[in-house]
Amino acid sequence: MTNMISIARATEDSRYPSKHEVNAMAKRLVEYYPMIKDRSSSSNTEWVLDELRRIIQPTNSQYISEMKDRWEIFYSKVQFYGIMKKAMKPPKTLNGVEHAAAVFRALPLLFPSSTMPPRKLGANSEALFHVLTTSEDPDGFLHQRPLSCPVVVVSEDNCMIAIGSTPVATFDSERFHEGLLYLMAYYYALHLVLPHVYWCYF
C-alpha cells in the first residue's frame, strides 16, 4: 500500500491513488489477510476491536470488555442528554432497533459538525446508519449512497457494516445499539492502518 502511494505521488500530476486502485489493493489485502473476510455475525466486528487493542493498547487484555462498558455508559448518557435537550422523545414504546435508531438520529443534533453533509444524503444521521425500508435492496442502496465512508445498514434480519459499496461485517439486529461502536472501530482502524488512503478514499 505504501509503495502504491509512493508510485502514484511520484507521477507528474503528483496524485493519490484512484478509488479503483484502492479497491484493487483492498481486495489484495483481503486475500492476504483472510481474517478480514466476513465469517460470522460477531467474529469480524470482534476482530476489528481486537485489532485496535493490538495497535493502541497491546498489553490490555481487557480492552474489548472495557470499551463495551464505556460504550454502554456513553449510550445511556446520550439518551438522558437527548431527552433533556428535546432532541428525542422518551422511547417508551419502541423496540430495540427503533430505540437505538432514535438515539443515533439524535447524535448529529447533540454533537453538530461544522462540515455540511452532501445534499443527496438527507438527514445527517444517514452518514452513520440507514434503516432499510421493505422495498429497499441493500446492494442498491450502497451503490446509490453519496458517501464512501463506513456505514451501518439495518434490515429486518440483521445489521451490516459496509465500506463504500462493499459489506465487511454483519451482526444481529438485537445488537444494533452497539453498531456505532463497531462503526467507529472500523473508522479508526482504517485511519491507523491506511492513513494516506483513508483521506483520499473517503
Rank of each mutant, 00 (worst) to 15 (best):
G122Y: 01
G122W: 03
Y187V: 04
L142P: 01
L94Y: 00
N95E: 04
R175N: 12
R119C: 04
I7E: 13
Y33P: 03
H130Q: 00
A10E: 11
K37G: 14
S65Y: 08
L194S: 08
S42C: 10
L29I: 10
A10R: 08
L190Q: 12
K77V: 06
A106S: 13
S14A: 13
P91M: 02
A24K: 12
P17W: 04
H99G: 01
D172W: 06
K27W: 12
T93G: 00
R54S: 14
H177S: 11
K37P: 03
A8L: 01
P34Y: 13
C200N: 10
S40K: 12
G96M: 02
K27A: 14
N23D: 15
P112F: 02
H99T: 02
V197H: 07
T170I: 07
S61H: 15
E72T: 05
C159H: 05
N95Y: 00
I36C: 12
H143V: 05
E126F: 00
E156M: 11
S148V: 04
W47V: 05
Q57G: 05
V154Q: 11
S6F: 06
F141E: 02
R15E: 11
T134W: 02
K68M: 09
V30R: 14
A24Q: 11
H20W: 10
Q144G: 07
I64A: 11
N158M: 07
E174H: 02
G164H: 11
M4F: 08
L192D: 07
